[in-house]
Design a protein around this nucleic acid. Sequence first.
DNA 1: TAGTGGTCTAGACCACTTT
DNA 2: AAGTGGTCTAGACCACTAT
Lengths: 249, 249
Amino acid sequence: MTAADLIDEPMRPGHGPLYRQVKQRIIRHLIDETWKPGDMLPSEPRLAESFGVSPGTVRRALDELVAENLLVRHQGKGTIVCRHDPERSLFHFFRMVDAAGDRPTPSSRVLACGRRRADRAEAARLGLPAGAPVVVIDRTRSAAGRPLLVERLVLPGRLFGPLAAVAPAELPNTLYTLYEERFGVTVYRAAEQLRAVTADARDAQLLEVATGTPLLEIDRLASNLDGMPVEWRLSRCRTDAYRYRVELV
Amino acid sequence: MTAADLIDEPMRPGHGPLYRQVKQRIIRHLIDETWKPGDMLPSEPRLAESFGVSPGTVRRALDELVAENLLVRHQGKGTIVCRHDPERSLFHFFRMVDAAGDRPTPSSRVLACGRRRADRAEAARLGLPAGAPVVVIDRTRSAAGRPLLVERLVLPGRLFGPLAAVAPAELPNTLYTLYEERFGVTVYRAAEQLRAVTADARDAQLLEVATGTPLLEIDRLASNLDGMPVEWRLSRCRTDAYRYRVELV
DNA sequence: TAGTGGTCTAGACCACTTT
DNA sequence: AAGTGGTCTAGACCACTAT
């Protein structure tokens, strides 16, 4: 191994445990796309040599990154950066289950997709200046042939500008995969806030329920590795056949 | 250290990684109450000697148990078994937050507390034989002086028999602490399923809302270390001032 | 001062995958 | 056969707590 193979400079004295400094360096390389989703990282001994630390220290940093769903290890092969493949996109952030506890495979129908200026609520939620351009997608999602939810997604135009030009029918069911592959935006975390609301006339028509039916409203803000908001999603769900499940530990 | 200090026999050849076998042995000692909540475990070198493994292997087992909220380490002091102190009881399983993202400190008012036979739904949910005795508690919880939710708790009578004799006014706000201190029942996990419902006449009166107001219904099944259900809780929440928050990773 | 957990290192061997 | 991650061991030193 020559100097050219080194990914980074050796660690210099810093604050906190060495393995956390190593972890932060690796995260920085994920942010600056030294390693992109799906890429393989250098092996643990190589990383250790690059950073000038012992293999055990690198290993501990990787352990935490794996626990946080940023990396995946494959024994005998190597360690890769997590991807939002359709499988993960569909199930990792989707918490509705049927009475048996099984997750449905939802399909989606786009009602509208366009570009406009953010209103005040949208700008505030996404951390954008007032009037910044946003892409707005309205769609419904169904499971087992019956409408499950209606939702509006608001995305920063700076990151997703060309998305508005995509024909509604072209938008895939698994948007997070699209964000990653077409726009280089990776959703790593999301925070959801839930409340109960009643269906208005539009909800009722789209969800095939009576006006006034109670719906579960899910307000989700998704962010990337930098902690920047990249999507605001407001969903209204029927909860007669599916419920929202949470495991508390 | 003498043989009498050993808490267990050395590991014998088994299946899977050694550290997981050590972890399972420790969990078994938590179940059989060799170490109770609040107790201090033997030090890592002592455990290693008892189990006949290296300190690093014990450490890895403890790492996982700490990550699962079964143990807590205190540098310089030792490792103790997690307790459901009122702080944890109030905040660990309670996910309602206000608009600013802060958790309220709810107070509770017991409406009824008694013992009777489980109906079919209750027996099924708690894994009890039909007609088994259960303790049922009805109460409301308020935050910032306003009613937040109304709920019914159903507990296996076998575990909580004497609880029905407690005067309603004596029941503390933090029930999980009571379960642990008075009945030796520790809640370790819970699964919640959420749906939207409308307030019936009783809900409306207790929550001071109009009949038909949408409410968030939280169906929680809590279990102990053995995986046995120990509480079924059905709550109906107003979501005008507080929302249910979930972090997705 | 002694004991505890927290960090870091070094090396051996195993299981799995690729060539 | 060579390279990867997975496990297990052993020992050094540090930071914190109790006495």
